[in-house]
Design a protein around this nucleic acid. Sequence first.
DNA 1: TAGTGGTCTAGACCACTGG
DNA 2: CAGTGGTCTAGACCACTAG
Lengths: 235, 235
Amino acid sequence: MPRYQQLKAQLTRQIQQGVYAVGELLPSEHELCDTYQITRTTVRKALDELQREGFILRQQGRGSVVCERRKQLGLLTVRGFSEAVGQSVRNRFIARPSLVDWERDFPFTPAEKELGSPCIRFSRLRSVGEQPVMYEESWLASTIVPSFLDLEFIEGSFFKTLSQRYLIEVLSSEYELHAIPAREPEATALGIAIGEPVLYIALRYATSLPHYFIYSKLWCDTNRYPVGNSYPQGR
Amino acid sequence: MPRYQQLKAQLTRQIQQGVYAVGELLPSEHELCDTYQITRTTVRKALDELQREGFILRQQGRGSVVCERRKQLGLLTVRGFSEAVGQSVRNRFIARPSLVDWERDFPFTPAEKELGSPCIRFSRLRSVGEQPVMYEESWLASTIVPSFLDLEFIEGSFFKTLSQRYLIEVLSSEYELHAIPAREPEATALGIAIGEPVLYIALRYATSLPHYFIYSKLWCDTNRYPVGNSYPQGR
DNA sequence: TAGTGGTCTAGACCACTGG
DNA sequence: CAGTGGTCTAGACCACTAG
């Protein structure tokens, strides 16, 4: 593993563990150079990626500020989710993790390596206050997460659990967006009428384990909480 | 303008002009160093961004390959529609560029600098073959694009026109997504029933001109062409 | 094997922020 | 003003690709 990725993974974990709290500054680039005995080029490559993935915001003359983490949508954010966080966001399992066959009806085809391993599936409903905002189904190869079925998620976060318990980092995502009429399952979960427009997102996350991905399907009620990408913009 | 951005803009233009055709290799990094009298660090910073924005795919031991524009509406990275879909795409003006008041009903508030300048608005319908796919309204400050009203777009592409005629590069975008029922104007334009779900996107592009943006509203029929982000993934 | 991109070193000067 | 991130130089070694 290249040194910049090691540093990135290290900082990611520290941020998720709260070593650097939201709003605080990371050590300066020069300090990180000293600490890890690497040059600034390497440090900056790690910080570049952290910034693109929304972990930090760098400000010239000030430093690297730890950001409120986005809510599980890769490059996409549920607007208002972060603001509501701490107050009233709730994640509830609709279906706890269980072994199933690999999904076939999906824009992304799992790799052979993955198909050779059993598949874990779970689904959750995310709400702000009493109002459901997003229904989510996820799949992943069970080989990479031993004892996952019996596990409680760390602070209710799947990504945090992956990072801290399995040392798997989520790196990037590909997705496909559709506006569709809600069918029975998602309409029921979201508490809206069948046929109401929902934002359907088919997603594939790349991980720090080559050839292993996390697959998700999301159904979002965008009336109250639109989906967006606004992350700290350089430039 | 930093040198890496100059190089990036230069290469972008050359790719758009067909100097380097799809599938061909860009000059190697070392050649670019010689040609532009800059170091490899700077060349690589430019190529990094081009790769992230989907213009090229770098392969170790081979080179930087110019990419096929993808088949989906490439909205979620900075990319014009015409490059995204290819040959059978047609863009038709619904309203040609004209001076209007600045829009107020929008998630993004124009900067003061922009509000001091008249606003240009135009709207277009984009079709693949005979089928409308997307209806688009755009706004920008008229001061940055003199004689824009009388202008024909270069190859029907707004971004290409900005780049080649005004030397303005589109850098990044922020957006907000909603799944909504089509109202009369967009339903008519898209040739679908009123109330059918459409993907509504409110967008703001940053440009190489500080404090000047391009604003767009898009209504997409995602049945035929889903919106996505899949670009060549490093790693 | 020659050439490519991937990573990294060890410096430098600059613009900007904050006290 | 000292310290930060933004940009850039001039090298180096490596893994990988293709002929």
